[in-house]
């Protein structure tokens, strides 16, 4: 009861904050387009990329091709729309995988502390010592091109951030009296970790994850742009920007529209996460709850 009313309250707050609500709408649109992409592209074959239309190469934006066409005469609108699906797959799997690895490690390291905790955190620090994109590029170059490898390399350069965050959270929550009470009740350590610490520690991590969804899209595009990402003719946005690069003097639209798609989506995630951070701040929320949820 309380949880759902809290979710309702959070939705209310989200709508109230115009800017983060705009971000929320952008993210929702992105998710819907990503899911429905194969059914709403005007030229499905062009979108997948295995066709040439030599008679319509490099056409500027028009009613028939609102985003113009590329070097091979493929409709850019279709390719950008289908690209959203790849970006969605990449961002969800990268962040999901990074959370799956990072959160349990941080939780265990923070709870156990001592030598085991330090050892785990030093491993995480080793990954953090590299600039994230550089590490991902090195990984991707080693593994070879392809969607799966992009996801793996990004997730591997990403998980230590969540480990850090979770570690700090766990460290502060494990000293709470309700954790003492749980120990006195004789609960098993896994129960204490996953039932008592995790739910109370996860909120900042989830906010960070929402923020990172945009960054994952951006970095995946970066990998493609650098030539170690997905294979052509996959219509991934970063790759689309690269493909237009050679002919940017003659046909600006090829790089522009996928670039704009990246910009807007990443912006959307950032705005939404910003709002989320605000409404999940316990002090602020308590204030709002104490006003009976009327804002």
């Amino acid at each position: 009861m309380m949880v759902s009313s809290e979710v309702k309250l959070m939705m209310k707050l989200l709508i109230k904050n115009k800017v983060s609500f705009a971000g929320f709408i952008i993210v929702l649109t992105f998710i819907f387009v990503g899911i429905l992409a194969p059914f709403i592209t005007p030229y499905p074959a062009d979108a997948r990329g295995w066709v040439f239309h030599m008679n319509q190469r490099l056409l500027p934006p028009s009613w028939k091709h609102p985003f113009g066409t590329d070097e091979f005469g493929r409709d850019m609108l279709s390719r950008v729309i289908l690209g959203s699906r790849y970006s969605l797959i990449i961002s969800v799997s990268v962040i999901g995988l990074a959370l799956l690895i990072g959160v349990p490690i941080g939780l265990v390291a923070g709870y156990l502390g001592g030598k085991v905790g330090s050892a785990l955190m030093r491993i995480a620090d080793m990954f953090l010592a590299f600039p994230p994109l550089l590490l991902a590029v090195a990984m991707a170059a080693t593994l070879g091109r392809g969607l799966r490898n992009v996801i793996i390399s990004l997730a591997i350069s990403w998980w230590p951030w969540y480990t850090r965050l979770m570690y700090v959270q766990t460290n502060s929550i494990k000293t709470m009296p309700y954790i003492d009470a749980a120990k006195v009740l004789g609960l098993r350590t896994p129960t204490i970790l996953f039932k008592h610490i995790l739910p109370n520690a996860i909120t900042p991590v989830m906010v960070q994850a929402a923020l990172d969804m945009g960054s994952a899209i951006l970095e995946a595009a970066g990998l493609s742009f650098l030539g170690v990402g997905v294979k052509p003719p996959t219509p991934e946005w970063g790759l689309l920007v690269t493909e237009g690069w050679a002919s940017i003097n003659r046909a600006w639209w090829i790089s522009l529209f996928p670039g704009l798609a990246i910009l807007i989506t990443v912006l959307g995630f950032n705005l939404m996460a910003d709002g989320l951070r605000e409404i999940t701040d316990p002090r602020l929320r308590r204030l709002l709850i104490s006003r009976g949820g009327r804002i």
């Binding site: 309380m2 709470m176 009296p177 309700y178 003492d180 009470a181 749980a182 039932k195 008592h196 739910p199 109370n200």
Partner: peptide, 9 residues
């Protein structure tokens, strides 16, 4: 309030 897990009924 500190000895009860705030996320549990």
């Amino acid at each position: 309030f500190l000895s009860l897990n705030p996320m549990m009924k």
